[in-house]
Amino acid sequence: MRDTLSQHANTFAGIPDIGTRITLFVVITFMLIVTILLVYFKMRESDDKKGI
């Protein structure tokens, strides 16, 4: 049981290669930066309302 589990555990090379990871990073960063911009404008709007 122990042997099959440890063999099983190593069958796939799990971590994707650096190219895939960087692509993923670019996509995630893009999504998050757009979010930051939207939140920023929302912040400006609510600041303006209070005259900050």
Partner: peptide, 21 residues
């Protein structure tokens, strides 16, 4: 809270950057 939110999202970018690289 909006300023906090911006800092949190920036932290998330840093976190994903570290994890993916």
């Amino acid at each position: 809270l909006f300023r906090d939110a911006i800092a949190w999202i920036a932290a998330l970018i840093l976190l994903f950057g570290l994890c993916l690289i």
